[in-house]
Design a protein around this nucleic acid. Structure first.
Lengths: 150, 150
DNA sequence: CAGTATCCCTCAAGATACTG
DNA sequence: CAGTATCTTGAGGGATACTG
């Protein structure tokens, strides 16, 4: 997905975005990153994606400046993947997808992942996206509103 | 994309959304639909997608309740593809992708498609999404804000 | 013009085994 | 544990010809 470019991507920002994160896994990786996931194995288990695919996706997300690599916060010599500012800006996209999925693709009583439980109507329960330092970035809210006046 | 399901899609609304519209073309078709495109040939020329692919995507988007088929508004006996309410709710997703693309993937002076010219900073110029009847749906605005208080 | 029917081909995705 | 290396598969995608 992210390799072969749309012709329209020259001028259309939506197409250009889709070229970068419009594949099966990238946005789910980003979603988990917002959720605090940082390590290879946690992404892998959380998503159920093949290791080779995950490795390639992570590499590309780093290339694109969406994730960055850090030394592990615990003692180990491994790496951690954290959102860059550019990656953090994808929060709006993830929230919009989540909101749409919640409203349109779930039955009222149907089970959904915990983080979404508090969502009600158009107003969305704030997530707690975390920055590279592990700090909560702030209580973002994504609001899509339709003003009264047409 | 839309056929093979993520395992996580059982409970994660983001994954479920990605399963439906997370392929290379669906969101671009929806984007064009917001723009007023309704006819097969116009989608085809606008996107540069293969006819067979476009036909399949349109069919699936109709199946999923994102687009609906209408008799052509001019005299002809052909069909038109218009957004359903469910499809219209995808506006937030398209806007978020557009906003991210604009801010992160374009150089300051770089050319981008006309509809986006007025976008400034976090505040986004309203698009004019049109409903099935051709009426402008209203001056939607998508705002992503970061409140002052963490 | 609006699709459908074929054919072909690439590459994303998965499984598995291997290494530091 | 955190990846890399390899192999295989199949579906997504493109081109083109055909039809009402």
């Amino acid at each position: 997905m992210s390799q072969r470019k749309h012709a329209v991507a020259e001028t259309c920002p939506v197409a250009r975005s889709v070229d970068l994160v419009g594949d099966r896994w990238s946005l789910l990786i980003v979603r988990d990153a917002f959720d605090g996931t940082r390590r290879f194995g946690d992404f892998q288990r959380g998503l159920g994606v093949a290791r080779s695919i995950l490795a390639e996706r992570l590499r590309r997300l780093v290339e694109e400046g969406i994730l960055a690599v850090q030394p592990a916060s615990d003692g180990t010599s491994y790496q951690e993947y954290v959102l860059t500012p550019r990656g953090e800006q994808l929060f709006a996209v993830v929230v919009a997808l989540r909101q749409w999925g919640e409203q349109q693709l779930f039955q009222p009583g149907e089970a959904r992942s915990q983080l979404l439980e508090r969502a009600t109507g158009q107003e969305l329960a704030p997530m707690q996206p975390r920055g590279a330092d592990g700090q909560v970035l702030g209580a973002w809210q994504a609001v899509v509103r339709k003003p009264t006046a047409p």
